[in-house]
Amino acid sequence: MFAYLWQRLDQSARLVLPCATALVFVLLGAMTWPLPYFGEVAPPLALIAIYYWAIHRPDLFSPAMAFFVGLLNDVLHFLPLGLSALLFVGAHQFVFSQRRFFAGHSFYMMWWGFALTILLAMLVQWVFLSLFRWQMIPFMPVLLQVVLAIVLFPLPCWVLIRLQRAVLSAG
């Protein structure tokens, strides 16, 4: 009986892990950092989670999940409702279609793929919001956020790799 329950619990944990990490990353992305002004250029952690799972476990991370993670991101970051959802689903599809290439040979390839993905995503977001608000949004902070996200990418990625190995690879 216990063995069966344990098995079911283990199975559920495997199924929800990608979505749960993406949601946690959205919440972490909105937290108050002890470093002054870091919040303004803090990397969009949710996009890192979506990028990672779209490459490694697209079977456990569907476009629907990317959509709902995006909606939560929009609400918490005061963005027009649907913007992150659209971007996240788009990024998920882009990465999913190129995943063999990004996950190909080494970590550096994945890193490069992320750089391309985030640059495209933020560029689209910048153009869209500038048009949506009919006002030129300063581009420098956006660029700074992209650069910082690329530099810090290995850190959240390492957490995701560890989680995937701990929960998804066993058994």
Binding site: F67, L81, G82, V89, Q93
Partner: peptide
Amino acid sequence: RTLNQRLSAIFFMILALGLLVLDR
């Protein structure tokens, strides 16, 4: 599976666009 991914992505992108228009 790939087809399913593509179709649901198209569906959710249209839904997101609809929400954006509604929000505006």
